[in-house]
Design a protein around this nucleic acid. Structure first.
Lengths: 192, 192
DNA sequence: GTCTATACACCGATAGAC
DNA sequence: GTCTATCGGTGTATAGAC
């Protein structure tokens, strides 16, 4: 059961995480420091350790939060059985690249290994694996069943997202390539 | 003119850079610390500042060195006029992914933003731009002239390389997808 | 229980003696 | 050119006030 004290703790944890995202947006993901983070929520640095056992644990919670947000964006995707593989792939790719493009620190944390020495915990990583499994199921509904095709498709989609975020953050230079990319990929699959 | 003392300095600089690559391989790129690096070449930390003005300058020299190595691997590529676009694209993509795959810290330094707060200097970045220009010229010889096609191709190639290095370092899971990727890309170009 | 104060070990970088 | 000593920063552990 959740007591009042548990809810208070959870609220403070969320407050800390929100401040961490703000700091990441302003100073970069690796620019989060414990003392400024603490003062952003009106604490001294050591008090943060009442809510997170380490700085890495804060990154871990942010990683998990990002994956839950990605999972939410997946539930809005159309059913390939309704709209066909082409439209479904276009919609999912667009959703993914837009997700990456709208919050650069979140993209960096989730899809690049950019925090020295940090790796997601097993629990947090499980949420990422769950998302990958959801994507696999989605691709299977689109008729992409073999591993080599899935490997190629994930490489293409992550490549587009990474180029977009890195070289045109917030823009659409690679977003506008999605339709022809999907057509190219599907045409090759029909051909073989 | 290069005096004996200049050559001695250059030799020491190379010694430091070699030790830095070794440390990066062992501790991760961001795990390079000045004191261990200094002791690896038999110095105290402050002496390093006689050869590099800052730690970032060491990353900068490593970045430039990596780009020169990449440029060297480009000169061995076949001429598209000799072997045709398909073979030329396959060879260049294979060379690039193998380059990324054979030295993970070098890949991380050159193609990911993984050192917090560090960006290559203008001089070092120029070498990366030169390499990109070489790649553009090469793609043009392969008949890939418009920007959208180049954007798509660079996204695909960097996506393959990143998946290979991240998820199967030293292996060939994405390397073996090159041939069909090139065929897919070229078929779509002929079709439109 | 939650906070503050203090301290520790490490970091990159600098000053100045030799 | 290399050293020692040191500075201000980091993440983090701990003691203890309230």
């Amino acid at each position: 059961m959740t007591t009042r004290i548990d809810r208070r703790r959870a609220a403070t944890r969320n407050e800390i995480l929100d401040a961490a995202w703000d700091l990441a947006a302003a100073e970069g993901l690796a620019g989060i420091a414990m003392r400024p983070l603490a003062s952003a929520v009106g604490m001294q640095a050591p008090s943060l350790y009442e809510y997170f056992p380490s700085k890495d644990a804060i990154y871990d919670a942010m990683f998990a939060e990002g994956n839950r947000e990605l999972a939410e964006s997946y539930v809005a995707l159309p059913d390939p059985a309704d709209v066909g593989a082409r439209e479904a792939l276009i919609a999912s790719t667009r959703a993914f690249i837009e997700f990456c493009n709208e919050n650069e620190p979140r993209f960096t944390l989730m899809f690049q290994r950019s925090i020295p020495g940090w790796r997601p915990s097993d629990d947090a990583y499980q949420e990422a694996v769950d998302n990958l499994r959801r994507l696999d199921a989605f691709l299977e509904c689109c008729g992409i069943t073999d591993m080599r095709s899935r490997d190629l498709w994930t490489a293409i989609v992550t490549g587009l997202a990474s180029q977009q975020v890195t070289n045109d953050p917030g823009g659409d230079r690679w977003l506008t390539l999605i339709d022809e990319t999907v057509d190219m990929f599907l045409a090759a699959r029909v051909a073989t």
